[in-house]
Computed example of a mutant assay.
Amino acid sequence: MKIVVIGGTGRIGSQVVQLLEGHEVVAAAPSTGVNTLTGEGLSGVLRGADVLVDVSNSPSFADDDVMEFFRRSTGNLVRAAREAGVGHFVALSVVGADELPDSGYLRAKAAQEKLIEDSGLNYTIVRATQFLEFAVAIADTSTVDGVVRLSDGGTQPIAAEDVAVAVAKAAGEPAVGGIVEIGGPDVLPMDEWIRRVLTARKDPREVVTDPAARYFGTVLGKDSLVPAEGSWRGRVGLAEWLGR
């Protein structure tokens, strides 16, 4: 199969490309002459493609910017995929995207999902939980006067390598015509997750539990960021990840 990976040079995409060895895989990104915002290179790279995988992300998380990115990028991908006769559109999204509209980023991901669902293409949307690799960034955005204020809402953080495995698996199988949710092996409150990471890194910042603390603009419930029961779980847990 010919599989085109949009965002194929990034954190997840580069691993997906490696995992799909044995197929004709093309890593597509602005650095390779493919720009989803302008449409540059899309028709050429998708010619003869069986599967389109989109793991690209907005360079800015500002509300208006991220919405513009996913609407324009996904719109261009849908049109190009239709014209090329692509048989399967796989996209990476976020658990809770359609349930937390106060978050500008998640609103944009929900808009992306809707464009794919309404495209008429065969598709699989892989919703992942927060990456373990994002822990310090989450702490940084939640720090005020040297104190990290975080919700005790539930999380199930997942290693980027496990996300890549799930996306590559979806790309190699028939479209499900719906959403697949994935998470890591550990279920724990967000404040506890970040506290453990900062402790392991000998980061002196105190993590204070604040149920009203917002995560990218939204207040979290107990299970807002936890995948559905029975969802696929990655292999790498927090302890193993920290040990590395």
Rank of each mutant, 00 (worst) to 15 (best):
I3N: 15
V5C: 12
G7H: 13
T9I: 15
I12L: 10
S14G: 09
L19M: 02
V25T: 13
V26M: 10
V26Q: 14
A27Y: 05
P30W: 10
S31I: 13
S31C: 07
G33M: 02
T38K: 00
G39E: 12
G41Q: 02
L42N: 02
L42T: 07
S43A: 06
G44L: 12
L46K: 11
L46R: 10
G48W: 09
G48P: 08
V51C: 09
F61C: 01
A62T: 14
A62L: 15
M67F: 13
E68L: 12
E68P: 01
R71W: 00
R72V: 00
S73D: 11
T74G: 00
L77W: 07
R79W: 04
R82V: 11
E83K: 06
A84G: 02
V86P: 03
G87M: 01
G87N: 01
V90N: 10
S93E: 03
V95S: 00
G96L: 15
G96Y: 11
A97V: 01
A97F: 01
D98P: 04
L100Y: 01
E113S: 05
K114H: 05
K114E: 06
I116T: 10
E117A: 13
L121W: 02
L121F: 04
L132A: 01
V136T: 10
T141W: 15
S142N: 15
S142F: 14
V144G: 09
G146N: 13
G146F: 05
G146H: 09
V147T: 12
R149P: 02
L150Y: 10
L150K: 03
S151F: 00
D152L: 07
G154T: 05
T155I: 08
Q156F: 08
Q156R: 14
P157G: 01
I158M: 03
I158Q: 07
A166Y: 03
V167W: 15
P174Q: 05
P174W: 13
G177F: 12
V180D: 09
V180Q: 09
E181S: 12
E181I: 10
E181P: 13
G184K: 07
G184C: 05
V187F: 09
V187Q: 08
L188M: 08
M190R: 13
E192Y: 00
I194K: 01
R201I: 00
R201A: 00
V207M: 06
V207E: 02
D210F: 13
R214A: 05
V219S: 06
V219D: 03
S224N: 08
S224R: 13
S224P: 02
P227A: 13
A228P: 04
A228H: 07
E229K: 11
G234R: 07
G234P: 13
R235G: 03
G237I: 10
L238Y: 03
L242I: 04
